[in-house]
Design a protein around this nucleic acid. Sequence first.
RNA 1: GCGCCCGUAGCUCAGCUGGAUAGAGUACUUGGCUUCGAACCAAGUGGUCAGGAGUUCGAAUCUCUUCGGGCGCGCCA
Length: 552
Amino acid sequence: MKAHLTDLLFSIVKKMTPEMAQSQIIIERPKSIDHGDLSSNIALVMAKALKKSPREVAQDIVEQIPPTESFSKIEIAGAGFLNFYFSPKTHNEIINHALEKHTDYGRNNRGGHEKIQIEFVSANPTGPLHVGHGRGAAIGDCLARLFEFSGWDVTREFYYNDAGAQIDNLTTSIKSRCMNISPEDPAFPADGYRGEYIQDIANAYLQKSTIQSNSGTVLSAADIADDDAIKNYGVHYLRKEQDQDLAAFKIHFDVYSLESSFYEAGKIEDVITILKNKGYTYEKDGALWLKTTSFGDDKDRVMQKSDGAFTYFVPDIAYHLNKWERGFKRVINEQGADHHSTVNRVKAGLQGLDKGIPADWPEYVLHQMITVMKNGQEVKISKRAGSYVTLRDLIDEVGCDATRYFLVARRADSQLVFDIDLAKSQNSDNPVYYIQYAYARIQRVLIQWGGDFNSLRSIEEYRYETLIEKKLIKKIEEFPEIIETATKELAPHQIANFLKECAADLHGYYNDTKFLVDNNNEKNGRLSLIYATQHIIKNGLNLLGISAPDSM
RNA sequence: GCGCCCGUAGCUCAGCUGGAUAGAGUACUUGGCUUCGAACCAAGUGGUCAGGAGUUCGAAUCUCUUCGGGCGCGCCA
């Protein structure tokens, strides 16, 4: 409908000012239904060039619009806006289109089956997942769902940093606990992890418990002297914990990539060799440096430490080269904003490899930090200090659906306050229940009606004339575009906001109008409208990974 | 000090590729169930869109600047 109107206006505008481009025709959806279903500011834009008042230009345009069945009214308003109102015929078409598409309503094929990889969570196997990881999980998974719905071939991927200094810290921490050295003890590693979960791992290790995870079975050696055995055991223990938490959050990954695998395959050395050959490295102070300043960084960075070990971003470069070689022309990395310094380094490294990788590849979605409030106080999250709000705690306390909603309903680049007491106490007052209730209410009405849902069609004999009906139809018409925009802008929170508005309109309609009336035309018209509304709520909730129960 | 993000109602947040009286939830004040589930609805109170300057027909939105908050600036990840 919007595209149709764009073409229509362009054909007229072009005659008046030939230099206008189609891209300058902007059709908006007015915030208020009082301003129509669609509107254009084109007259205001053209007024200056034509040396006429915007309202005069608007009048000229309106006079040239051929008779159309799509709009019942076209008016000039305000400073010179053109407002278009859908006709009854258009109302029918919108509703019937949504009913026909059903679970596919809103789906598009922008992606054309192209491959896209979305990497998210990627928590180090050094502790349980916390709220911050939960935010990344919710955002990343919703992005993946949006891209799938937009015709992309999506790979969800999790990258484990299972090598390097942090893992060594984990190992020494477990080892110390095995030897009954508590975190308060001066002998405990200074950079060690102090959470109680370390003791759990140590106990399991000493008791020779085996771990069964996605990646296989790991037997405990129960040998305190064997660092490699402790490391292997600890990493697998925590990976299993994380896998369970993610499963409880209804998130799955297609591919798990291990940092250690790039070491084992010699990929780190390969990257170093290429960068050396391309002349982007130099030695200083006994270390090997990468000239990241050649690619916009403010200082060069160490790649290989004086002790011979590589810094963290070198495996990252190898990993991203691997992504590129696997054929992903589009890659999105969802991470916490505390990692944003890695973005430049990885991109600099990729450019230095000179493999034809575009400078803006990969794309990043960085979510800001979460402040957790409990009992009116801020809870400081520190893995090493052992103070925690785990993702599992949240899921257990407020439920998977509500947790997902809270974590995805905000823009990624704004900090969010997660008030645990509020989320817990809200039970019946939670936005997610508000939306689910709208869905369930429709379901109850349809069941009570008892007809064949799939036979419902909007018919010409019933005209949607009330304000609330027009608002709902406008929402239905808008839904596919909301999905396109949220996908394009990598902004899943827009879906959450949209759903809340839909639910509000539906509840308003429900309270205002009785659906199961004697008049068949009225009944049919109203039921088709709420059934179509149910489709967009269901499809929208699916995109957020939130359930749509028939009754609550 | 430098870089990135943010600052909108008492609180939590939308709106930001410039548009029409700045929205929602919550809190507070009222009213609505013998009628499809009241986990709902309707009405009201509440704003110098952090401050200032600029760009223009028009700025919460773009530019500059000041102030305030978060994150980063490691041979940690």
